[in-house]
Nucleic acid binder design. Structure first.
Lengths: 81, 81
DNA sequence: CTACTTTTTACGCCATAGCGTAACAATCGA
DNA sequence: TCGATTGTTACGCTATGGCGTAAAAAGTAG
């Protein structure tokens, strides 16, 4: 499961996929973040207008963190050693 | 240079670091994104209220992309093969 | 110390995120 | 097939992001 994202749609997809992988509902995320289910829904559907705080809250609830990497940079040997 | 981020502050720092590494000014980013210099400044200083679109625009200008990874998950062997 | 560049902050304005609340639609299990 | 859970959409409301514009503050080279 590669969770690379350059767009709000890709971030939303990644969040939804992770949530499903955890077996959770949007309501579960809502409870853990104090965000409304509607907000989670909107975010998962790729709302680019969402606030960074909102994204970070959901990420935290899912136990995820961001890594900012060079575009297309798919695991080079220097990254390992 | 590890660009892992869980907070708006960390994202801002990562963006600023990358920009400096490219030898660019906020004004350069502004030109490439049509965002105001003030907006770039605010973002680099950790504005959690920033819009996702804003973050993504700056990321694109810097040639960066997001990777959503398990918290603390620092390169496990399964990620390589 | 002085000019120039870069970054930060301010003000008025408009657009919209996320809230409470609620209804509606879609998905799923028995 | 149907009841129930889950997800999407809507309305009015308040708060605030990012805009244009501008000025002040901080950093840098000479």
């Amino acid at each position: 499961m590669d969770l690379t994202a350059r767009t709000a749609e890709q971030i939303g997809e990644a969040l939804r996929r992770t949530r499903k992988a955890r077996g959770w509902t949007q309501s579960d995320i809502s409870a853990r973040t104090n965000l409304r289910v509607a907000t989670i829904s909107s975010l998962e559907n790729g709302d680019a207008g969402a606030k960074l705080a909102t994204v970070l809250a959901v990420m935290a609830a899912l136990g995820l963190e961001f890594r900012l990497v060079e575009r297309g940079g798919s695991l080079e040997i220097e990254d390992i050693f």
